[in-house]
Structures are given as C-alpha cells and as structure tokens.
C-alpha cells in the first residue's frame, strides 16, 4: 500500500492509501471528536461531529468517511467547526433526559466528555423532556432510552460482530427508538446472546451492566479492535 502525505491543522502527516482522515489524524495524535464512529464497525456518518474543512471543497466532510489524498489540506478545529460541534452536543443534551448525577457512567461517558472538552457549560435550547422507558428486563444489562443518542453503535456491533442483529432502530425522526427483536422487552429477546458487546460500545449510559452504582461503571471499547484483529489473523486457530 502506498503512502500519502497530507496536512492536518498545519502539521504534515503521513497516512496509508485508503485510510480515513479520521484514523490518519488519530494515528498522529490529532483527536477529532466523534460519537457514531467506532474502530472495527462500519461507518454511519450520522453524528456529524467529525466534520472537517478540506481546502478546495465547498462542503464540510465527515472525517470518518473521507479517504486521505495526496496534498490534502485539512482543518479539524476552526472556530466555525467548534461552534457547530457545541451546538450539536447541545442538541443531543436537549433531546432526551441526560441526568448525569444518577448515571452509572458518570465520569466515563463520551457525550459528557465531549461537552466538557468543547466547553458546553449550559444548554441554550429548550429541553424536550420526552417521557421514555427504561428496560430492565434483561438479567445482566439495562437499556435507558433517556440516555440514548441513536448513534447505532449497538445495532452495528450486534449485527456485524456478534451476528445476532438483536437491535435495530424503529420509528423515524424524533420518534426513533432502539428496539430489540419485535419491540419486545430485551429480556425476552430470542436472538440476544447476552454477549454484552452492545453495552461495551455504547458511548453513554444508555446500555449498562446492572448492579453498578452511580459513576461506577467503566467500558472497555478496546476489545473490539482485539476481536477484529484476532479474526483477521485467525488467532484462535493456532
């Protein structure tokens, strides 16, 4: 594979052909914000947090989907981009009911971290306060729709890695919800293998392990990279 040289935020970096701007930047220590992307899963391009400016292109481009090109000039943190990202985070915080104080993931939530990192210290939008259920029917895990940001990581990991496709999205627009099987309680799902991958990849406290108290839970997202590499190299055979 050949190597490409590009400029990101004024720094010259190299990347492999076919690599995305997101991962090339990441490898060079430049962290572009993201919520729907997760290494090892297909890309949704849905959260729009990773949008960057690429010189010569009129429209902002999602770093998670854009392939590097020779001499590409990328800006990942212009004032306009930062303003957009703050507003997107505000939109997410106002969309459902994010009460960090009672969340098992408090302190380790990707949404919370991002808000802090972007300097979102209050929300200027009207909170929607939808009335949403919590599904505690599964023996080991729980799903709190109030904290779901519809990133679809759980849907993708369950389909692409576990092969169970327990999760999908039902409804549309503001009425979108994560569902298991035919909308039955998670605990009654016939397809769920209780592998817990969805819980690990969920960026917020929407999917959580039961029996942890507030701010106690931590997620291991590195496991995916391990599984995927192991699969490619067939590590379990030798």
């Amino acid at each position: 594979m050949s190597v490409r040289t590009l400029e990101v935020d004024g720094r010259t970096i190299t990347a492999l052909e076919g690599q995305t701007v997101f991962s090339a930047a990441w490898d060079s220590g430049i962290r572009i914000p993201r919520l729907c992307h997760l290494g090892g899963l297909s890309e949704a391009g849905a959260c729009r947090l990773c949008l960057v400016e690429i010189e010569g292109q009129k429209k902002l481009q999602p770093a998670c989907l854009t392939k590097v090109a020779e001499d590409m000039v990328v800006n990942t943190a212009t004032p306009a981009l930062l303003a957009h990202r703050r507003l997107i985070v505000e939109l997410l915080l106002a969309e459902r009911n994010h009460v960090c104080a009672v969340c098992v993931l408090n302190g380790a939530c990707e949404l919370q971290d991002l808000a802090a990192q972007l300097g979102v210290d209050h929300v200027r939008l009207r909170p929607q306060y939808p009335s949403l259920p919590v599904d505690l029917s599964h023996e080991r895990f729980g799903l709190d729709h109030n904290r779901c940001i519809l990133c679809t990581r759980c849907v993708r990991v369950c389909d692409e890695v576990e092969g169970a496709h327990t999760w999908d999205v039902a409804g549309r627009g503001r009425n979108s919800r994560i569902i298991s099987d035919l909308g039955e309680p998670w605990g009654d799902s016939g397809s769920c293998t209780s592998c817990g991958k969805c819980v690990q990849v969920c960026p917020t406290g929407a999917l959580f392990s039961k029996g942890r108290t507030v701010a106690e839970m931590r997620k291991d997202r590195g496991f995916l990279r391990y599984i995927m590499t192991a699969r490619e190299k067939k590590l379990w055979i030798s």
């Binding site: 389909d159 496709h165 327990t166 999760w167 999908d168 999205v169 039902a170 549309r172 298991s180 035919l182």
Partner: peptide, 25 residues
C-alpha cells in the same frame, strides 16, 4: 400485527428487529 411480522421475518430470513424497523419507518 406482530405475529404476522414475525412470520414474514422468518420466511424472508430477516432479523425481526429489522422487519419492525422497516414497518415503523
């Protein structure tokens, strides 16, 4: 109705959640 969706899912070999996802979209 749900049982009908279940039947269709089985026959078309689709995950039930995908069938409900489409039906509600």
């Amino acid at each position: 109705p749900a049982p009908l969706l279940k039947k269709i899912a089985r026959r078309l070999m689709l995950p039930p959640s995908r069938v409900l996802g489409v039906a509600t979209f």
